[in-house]
Nucleic acid binder design. Structure first.
Length: 257
DNA sequence: ATGCCTCAATTGTTGAGA
C-alpha cells in the first residue's frame, strides 16, 4: 500500500498537475498540504471523478490540508491539532483508513526568527509531540506525514551555510523533531537513505531547481507496527520539473500488505 | 542585499511561503 504526501502550494493552481500525479502514481492515501482553499470551494468533484474520496481542513487564502483516499472513505476524521483553542490555522487532519491511522500535517515555517512566528512553530511542535505520544501509546498502526518544515540534519540540505539562519534548521527545530522521533517513529526516507542528499523542496527563486539547491522537509514517519512493513520510500522528483509545478515534490512510502 | 518566484485575495498591491 502506497501512502504519499505532497505540499501542492495551491490546489486550484495545481489541479491538472495533481490529477495527473494521482492517476500516474495512484497512492492509496494522498495527503495534501497548502491547499490554500476553503472547504466549500475545494475541487472535490474532480478528485471523486477519478475515484478518490476527499476530506479537507481548509481556510481562506493559505495553509490547509486534505486527505484523498482511493476507493473508500476515511473514518473518524478529526480536524485540528489539540492543545490551543486560540489556534485558527488549518494545519492538521487525522483519520482511520485502510487499517491505518493517518496523520497529515503542515507544520509552521517559523521564519523570521526570533519572533512570534518562530515561537508559534516551537509551541506547535510541543503540541504535536503530545498528540504523537498518545498515538504511539495506542499501538495502532500509524503513519504521520506532511510538510514538517524541519531539515533534520546537515546531510539533508544542499548548503548548510546558505540556510544556517533559517527556522527550518535551527537547533530548537531540530531538537523538537528529534524528540518526536525518539518516541519510536521511523523516518522512512532517512532510514532508506542514511547518507542523506535527498531533497523534497526546491525554491522557485534563484534557479534553485536547475542548480539542485534543495532540502528535505517533507517526512513520512512510521509507528513500529508500520515500520515492520516498510518496503520502500522515495521522492517523485520528476514532478518538480514539470510545467506549473509546486515547489515541493511528492514523497511516498510503500508498506507491505 | 532579505530580493530573486509563485499563489491567493483582488484588479494594484500585499502577505505568505522557505
Amino acid at each position: 500500500m502506497r501512502i504519499a504526501s505532497f505540499n501542492i502550494n495551491g490546489v486550484k493552481a495545481r489541479l491538472p498537475r495533481l490529477l495527473e500525479w494521482l492517476e500516474e502514481r495512484r497512492p492509496a492515501i494522498a495527503c495534501l498540504q497548502e491547499i490554500k482553499s476553503q472547504d466549500e470551494t475545494f475541487p472535490t468533484k474532480e478528485f471523486e471523478a477519478i475515484g478518490y474520496h476527499v476530506e479537507t481542513h481548509g481556510q481562506k487564502g493559505f495553509n490547509g490540508v486534505a486527505l484523498l483516499t482511493d476507493g473508500e472513505a476515511a473514518e473518524n476524521v478529526v480536524r485540528g491539532l489539540p492543545g490551543d483553542p486560540d489556534d485558527v490555522q488549518s494545519r492538521f487532519i487525522e483519520a482511520d483508513v485502510k487499517g491505518i491511522h493517518i496523520v497529515n500535517l503542515y507544520l509552521p515555517n517559523g521564519n523570521p526568527l526570533p519572533g512570534p512566528k518562530f515561537d508559534y512553530k516551537l509551541a506547535w511542535m510541543e503540541r504535536l509531540s503530545i498528540r504523537l505520544t498518545e498515538l504511539r501509546a495506542s499501538e495502532k498502526p500509524t503513519v504521520v506525514v506532511g510538510d514538517f518544515n524541519v531539515i533534520p540534519e546537515d546531510k539533508d540540505v544542499w548548503s548548510v551555510a546558505a540556510m544556517k539562519d533559517d527556522a527550518l534548521m535551527q537547533p530548537q527545530s531540530r531538537d523538537a523533531y528529534r524528540t518526536l522521533l525518539n518516541d519510536g517513529w521511523t523516518d522512512a526516507i532517512d532510514t532508506l537513505n542514511p547518507r542523506g542528499g535527498v531533497w523534497t523542496f526546491w525554491d522557485y527563486q534563484a534557479g534553485a531547481w536547475q542548480r539542485d539547491h534543495g532540502f528535505r522537509i517533507d517526512h513520512l514517519l512510521l509507528s513500529p507496527e508500520c515500520a515492520d512493513r516498510l518496503e520502500g520510500a522515495g521522492v517523485d522528483k520528476e514532478y518538480r520539473g514539470r510545467e506549473k509545478a509546486s515547489d515541493h515534490a511528492p514523497v511516498w512510502v510503500e508498506l507491505r500488505d
